[in-house]
Design a protein around this nucleic acid. Structure first.
Lengths: 168, 168
DNA sequence: TTGTGTGCAAAAGCTTTGCATGTTG
DNA sequence: CAACATGCAAAGCTTTTGCACACAA
């Protein structure tokens, strides 16, 4: 994943953000909500709701799917988690605090997901927002294709504007 | 939608493409498959599988959901139909023959979908394909936001590189 | 204390599958 | 006539909802 900075206080920071969000919206600070937030930020990228539920269960938390879905939505609302649809009928989630905006390249053969940044997408967003009189809040850009060779190789980006790193 | 050309022979052309695809893959040319293809090309953009099924039913075709889903997959395979996920767990389809490559801007308030073209996305695709050694076959770019004002206004694009038109 | 949040399970919604029948090649 | 496609309905999966109980404020 593409980190903005390596910060050991990330967990504290995101908890604070979450707390503010809950307060601002008159929502309760339950242990389940914080437990889910913590587990998400301990894990690495791209997971689905069921995997998170199973993970919570194996960590001996007593949570339900309903709470997992509920909390994921809250976290998406306060931008601590991003929700993706990588072409399947299964939502994928990803923690987003401390990460640069990035997009995804998905191998249709092996399912591998790479991340990349390209400044042109920002230009497109702002131009199209103006042109179409839309207040664009977010976007989703997925490139689909096949890894060349063994579906395993990657190469570092060299352009200063384009950062690339493998995920999973 | 963004048409490449206005062609009254579209139906014939797509039928031929579909026939070739069926032959090439040893699949049968059934009346149901052609009926579904025709109905899709008579309709305007962005529909889901259930809507198509209902539409077939009201047209007094005797088709099943299974056949609708099966045929949609065949049509996606031969590039006569494009499948989208606009952030929901519901696949949306769109006929694609004779249309320019385009991307989508979705209003999160009223669900309106606009289409736009931007050449920069092609540049990003080819650059990232090279950089990450991926053979990129397709992509999906969705911009999400809110219509300004009454969720109804649109404005024509004026840049020669960027064509814009409202859908639905 | 009071009302929101939770767990659990059932329901809902989209998509796929199984099976007997129909039809293409 | 043999294999594949279809219709129908049931099953599968992900996500949402209802309800009684728990607990944060």
């Amino acid at each position: 994943m593409i980190k903005e900075e390596a910060n050991t206080n990330t967990i504290e920071a995101v908890k604070n953000i979450f707390s503010s969000h809950l307060e601002k919206n008159g929502l309760r600070k339950t242990p389940e909500r914080y437990a889910i937030l913590e587990e998400i930020y301990k894990r690495t990228d791209h997971f689905d709701a069921e995997a998170l539920y199973i993970h919570m269960k194996t960590q001996n938390y007593r949570v339900s799917r309903a709470t997992v879905y509920n909390t994921l939505e809250l976290l998406v609302n306060c931008d601590l988690v991003t929700k993706h649809q990588f072409g399947k009928n299964l939502a994928q989630y990803e923690k987003s605090y401390g990460y640069k905006q990035h997009d995804h390249l998905i191998c249709v053969d092996c399912g591998k997901v790479l991340e990349f940044c390209d400044p042109r997408i920002q230009q497109i967003k702002s131009m199209m927002g103006d042109l179409l009189r839309f207040n664009i809040t977010h976007h989703s850009l997925n490139l689909y294709g096949e890894c060349e060779g063994a579906c395993e190789r990657t190469r570092k980006a060299d352009s200063p504007d384009n950062k690339v790193e493998e995920v999973r």
